[in-house]
Nucleic acid binder design. Structure first.
Lengths: 234, 234
DNA sequence: CGCCTGCTGACAGTTTGTGTCAGCATGGCC
DNA sequence: GGCCATGCTGACACAAACTGTCAGCAGGCG
């Protein structure tokens, strides 16, 4: 891949050399004819690089959206920003903070200062108003149980209002349509169930850990759902 | 740059598709003959990618050298998974794909194999059922206008049903409470407005680009909102 | 064994990349 | 204005790279 490599070196030269830098100089730097240099510049521009060229002066690298191989595309960052913003709706503050923190770290790895600052600004601007709801249940406990594969004893009030006591193996937390949900293997029904978090009135560690492993159970669940449609709603 | 682009898509496919994945599948995914797929795999390997291929089984992406190692906490990863899952609700397929792709890349950088595979399983298990709504408006156009700072002429139907024609400067896309929203500077009202995406009945580039820059406008918006509460709803 | 799959070589056709030459447009200088 | 340096584009021919087709080998799995 001689060409791709050369384009990388071109970008590097644009960043490194004192501005303005002439096409002739860049051509020498990358070992290519002036004509080809112009073509390479065109390629970079087509790829999103903002290279300012002025007749009689030279080139200036205005912005470096180093999208390709290394970093994230602009759309990907935008998607993550939007997605993390939605976490507020879950009412789970720890989760939201974690999302913001992860996102901040991702943004910090962006190549150039300018897009980094731009994304930070966007991130701050779109902070949605409080409007947060109380987490219906101890999400931290649920998460810990998922990760450490610990069985839980829960009191669960289903959508009809009936309360039952069960041992469940929590597999994951999901959020959709404004509702926090927990996927569990229900030892009472010997089947998968999706509990609404607000229905979990009491949850405590049973002291037992469950087997098979969480990942294996999830795989089974995914396979079964693929075979027979969505599961019953507990 | 067809080839380089295709190699990127190949990497993405390797990260995204359930393992193991056959060469035939990857060839179809990248629109290339099986023979060429083998050549592309060889190219990626030459570039440092650790792709494990086994006869009779398929390919497995072992490690992703394209990213600096980043360490995320388990909770952070969980938050991102949950957040990205919610993107489906926006009805914007491009956005959702970008989110999944970014997430797959992040997960690929996780230190140990075990949590990586666990997250992949979780990611796949929780794929929510289709249930997708049509994007109410050309989101790609809106995004492009935001990024390239291009003014738009829109027909907007507000919540009372009144339709107006305006020139707006789109600043960003937001999603909350099940509704896609677009923050704009409205040239008609000379003020910020938050448009509901479904109310934008027609949007086309006016041919003008706007100043001040998007980031500066967003900063102003954030500052003003901090001073005087949320903006009017157009 | 038969099948699926990864993997490699060879060949031809096509595409792409490249250098050379020519010319136009623009900004700065005298 | 003339002049020069420089960005930029088109045309053309040659070279290099890429790609599909065909063929064959090897390893896992039932």
């Amino acid at each position: 891949m001689a060409r791709t490599d050369r384009l990388m070196r071109l970008m590097d030269a644009l960043r490194r050399l004192p501005v303005p830098v002439t096409a002739m100089r860049l051509a020498a730097e990358t070992g290519v004819s002036p004509r080809q240099l112009y073509r390479d510049i065109a390629t970079l521009r087509a790829g999103g690089a903002l290279i300012d060229g002025e007749a009689g002066v030279g080139y200036r690298l205005t912005e470096d959206p180093a999208l390709p191989p290394q970093s994230f595309s602009r759309l990907e960052i935008e998607a993550l920003v939007l997605a993390v913003g939605e976490l507020r709706q879950t009412g789970d503050a720890a989760l939201e903070d974690a999302g913001r923190s992860a996102l901040a770290r991702i943004i910090a790895t962006l190549a150039d200062d300018q897009s980094r600052q731009a994304m930070h600004t966007v991130l701050r601007s779109f902070r949605s108003p409080p409007a947060r709801v109380e987490p219906p249940v101890d999400m931290a406990l649920l998460r810990r149980a998922c990760w450490e594969e610990l069985a839980l004893d829960v009191s669960y009030r289903d959508l009809k209002g009936w309360v039952t006591e069960r041992e469940v193996w929590p597999l994951g937390i999901s959020y959709s349509d404004g509702t926090l949900m927990v996927l569990v293997w229900c030892c009472l029904r010997q089947d998968w169930r999706v509990f609404h978090a607000k229905g979990i009135e009491n949850a405590r560690l049973s002291g037992r850990s469950f087997r098979p492993r969480r990942v294996a159970l999830l795989r089974d669940y995914a396979a079964r759902r693929a075979a027979s449609g969505p599961p019953a709603k507990a």
